[in-house]
Amino acid sequence: MKNSTHFKIFFLVFTFLSFFLVTTDTHAAAGEQKRVEKHEWTFSGIFGHYDNAQLQRGFQVYKEVCSSCHSMNYVYFRNLAEEGGPGFTPEEVKVIASEYTVIDGPDDFGEMFEREGKASDNFPSPYSNINEARASNGGAYPPDFSVLAKARSTERGFPWWFVDLFTGYQEQGVDYIYSLLNGYKEVPEDFKLQDGMHYNEYYPGNQIAMGQPLYDDSVEYADGTEATISQMAEDVSAFMMWAAEPKLEIRKKMGFKVAIFLFVLAGLLYYSKKKIWSRIEH
């Protein structure tokens, strides 16, 4: 009897909310922001994991295209060799690091000096500070890549924001970034584009300060993969996800073990409870 009442209530809640939520969309921006599609990633889902080759390609895109404007301050060169990452060897990491110049000091004369990067260094910033970054990019600050994949999202509306709670969907950021990188299109006739801005289907307001960063064959992949825009966008997005969540693989692996443990323990406790309560009438 109680259960049917609860069901009635849930149904009422659902219809009540649906009325409001499906009909109106308060997040429509000035231009028409195209809806971001869900993309398939190797790291999504309960058994998600990174694809080493993809992360290495993504790193190459970052290094050759993005890093001229975008810093990645919280990522260290040594992270590239860590478990659950692009899978470079410590020797390769040493070489990669040494190709960078980092600022160190002060030396014994009180001066800051430049030296080769070491594995223990973090990725250096292309600019000395935010102001320089803004000045070099028409007032717009190219955001740091370290957690960018977690700092972006897509509006999914009802009931998706509820459903997403239980499907483990956490790739909203990379789906958006992937779409954005593929989203540079010809300016529509009736659209007023401001000076210095570029048209993008997915950016809120459709005007983005960043010029199209990727063109076919912008990069020559070390593993010979064809470097289409869509391929590079996918690879660099995956790389950004790793940069934001380097512990993703170990987190999901641990989660699986914890889940098994808790289910077994719940079972044991259930039978214990039944045994103990069988002593009295209840």
Partner: peptide, 12 residues
């Protein structure tokens, strides 16, 4: 609790 921590920690 574990579901959120391990499989969707940022959704909330």
């Amino acid at each position: 609790f574990a579901w959120f921590i391990f499989f969707n920690p940022n959704i909330l």
